[in-house]
């Protein structure tokens, strides 16, 4: 069996404790110094080792892998380890690394806002171009989120394939070791096997996704390496003939929960409602800075932290986010409409 490795690097976003009394006072929504320090700690404690392990495999074992690195992660990485950026570029040139498109802030915007989703993807793509001069053509959304209507947006942005979850319901007995057609024949789909997926025979190839926020079994990967494929090679070696239809959004589960459940409790719904309410006005105002702020608020980490529980944190975060959104609302009212 051929293995196709994917690694996902992203950075959690945390807003400030933005109180009701901060509304209208031009207070910052993010503590950039604290965020930078947090990334530095994350990099030193975990990610530096991850990068070193990955580069070692690439240099010594002819390893191949695809990378999704969120935009906010790349921004910070470029600041504290420009040599890592350079090394990634070298392996991309050697065709051992493939850079995937995605959202800038590891965002859930694709679930509820076409405009912010487009903004997130475009901004991420622009960053890859500015750092390495590379236009990504394969897309990996946050935890493999995908729905049929994404195809027109992604095609328009220059993508010709996406990776999503291979779910039993949509596969209807078919296996994941093939390239599928989306609703648009020119746009292909590659599937990540879901953990509940029951493969009858050993697949001819398998996509293996590792989030660097979790423990990565480097030794296991190294012992199993036998000329892995790059995603782009899968697309050129296999012909797509069957459709994989996804009318409603799907994705890989996170911590055992269906991804869409992260947008369904009352607090998450109200945040989304407010974002969409502002988005309409924002698009008319064409204020790019505020659009970027709003898209940053769609980061997955916010919605995870809004999961209800016995602790105060989700409720406090909800209040901070609503105060921030109100502050944006008030500032928007002062802007002229385009």
């Amino acid at each position: 069996m051929k293995s196709v490795y994917l690694f996902c690097f992203h950075l959690e976003e945390s807003v400030t404790a933005f109180s009701f009394f901060d509304i209208g006072k031009q207070q910052p929504y993010w503590d950039e110094v604290a965020q930078a320090k947090k990334f530095e700690t994350q990099y030193q404690d975990r990610d530096q080792h991850t990068w070193q392990s990955l580069f070692l495999l690439l240099s010594q074992h002819n390893f191949k892998a695809a990378l999704y690195i969120s935009g906010n992660y790349l921004e910070r990485l470029a600041q504290i380890s420009p040599e890592t950026i350079t090394e990634i570029g070298l392996y991309v040139k050697k065709k051992q690394l493939l850079l995937l498109g995605g959202t800038y802030h590891f965002s859930l915007a694709g679930l509820f806002s076409e405009a912010l989703f487009t903004l997130e993807v475009k901004r991420h793509k622009d960053l890859l171009i500015s750092l390495w001069g590379i236009k990504p053509t394969i897309f990996l959304n946050t935890y493999g989120l995908y729905k049929d209507t994404d195809v027109s947006i992604l095609s328009h942005l220059g993508f010709d394939a996406a990776i999503t979850a291979g779910l039993n319901w949509h596969l209807a007995g078919r296996t994941t070791d093939q390239v599928f057609l989306s609703i648009n024949k020119n746009f292909k789909l590659l599937l990540l096997p879901h953990e509940t997926f029951h493969q009858v025979d050993e697949p001819s190839f398998e996509l293996q996704l590792y989030h660097t926020s979790e423990e990565i079994p480097w030794e296991k990967i190294q012992s199993a390496i036998s000329s892995p494929w790059l995603l782009s090679e899968v697309l050129s070696f296999r012909t797509a003939s069957e459709f994989y239809r996804v009318p409603q959004a799907i994705g890989l589960p996170y911590k055992g929960q269906d991804l869409v459940s992260y947008t369904e409790n009352p607090m998450q719904r109200e945040i989304i409602f407010k974002i969409k309410y502002l988005e309409e006005r924002l698009l008319r105002s064409e204020n790019e800075m505020t659009q970027l702020i709003l898209s940053r608020l769609t980061a997955f980490s916010h919605f995870v932290q809004l999961q209800k529980g016995s602790h105060e944190a989700p409720y406090e975060l909800y209040l901070y986010l609503m105060n921030i959104l109100t502050d944006i609302e008030i500032s928007l009212l002062k802007l002229p409409l385009a």
């Binding site: 719904r269 109200e270 209800k308 105060e312 209040l319 609503m322 109100t326």
Partner: peptide, 22 residues
Amino acid sequence: LLKQLIESGANSQLSGKFHFTG
């Protein structure tokens, strides 16, 4: 009642026009 009220407020979808200060 704070948590319950926050959830009720969110559920009522008061267009983000209902604030809690703590």
